[in-house]
Amino acid sequence: AEETGLRVELAEEDDGKKNSIAMRLWVEDPKKLKGKPKDNGAIEFSFDINKENPDDVAQEMIDSGFFQECDSKTVAKSIRDRVALIKWRRERCQQVNV
């Protein structure tokens, strides 16, 4: 996710069971964004990794003024990459347990 200039991490321990998980997103390199982000710090939010769409969260962040419309794809990609990693880790854990 570093190419996007944004960083997304878990804001809580992943127990492997919960669908809705707390995540934290912040700007690591503002130069990689097209628009100017609101200089706010880390944005914490909860996200349902099975039901929700990263594009929707990205749009809500834009609506809330954290990012500009031109960066919607970048924000969505950062969240999508992190969600993919969480899912991959969970699948791997299940395989190990089996």
């Binding site: 960083r7 991490e9 912040w26 690591e28 390199d29 706010n40 710090g41 880390a42 944005i43 914490e44 939010f45 909860s46 929707d56 969260v57 809500e60 962040m61 609506d63 809330s64 954290f66």
Partner: peptide, 27 residues
């Protein structure tokens, strides 16, 4: 640090807090 809360009309809550120094990338 202090945290602020923004609630989107769709219902999602965003809690904004300062990024801890230790999490910032090394120059």
């Amino acid at each position: 640090g202090s945290a602020t809360q923004v609630v989107h009309s769709a219902g999602r809550r965003f809690i904004v807090s300062p990024v801890p120094e230790s999490r910032l990338r090394e120059p």
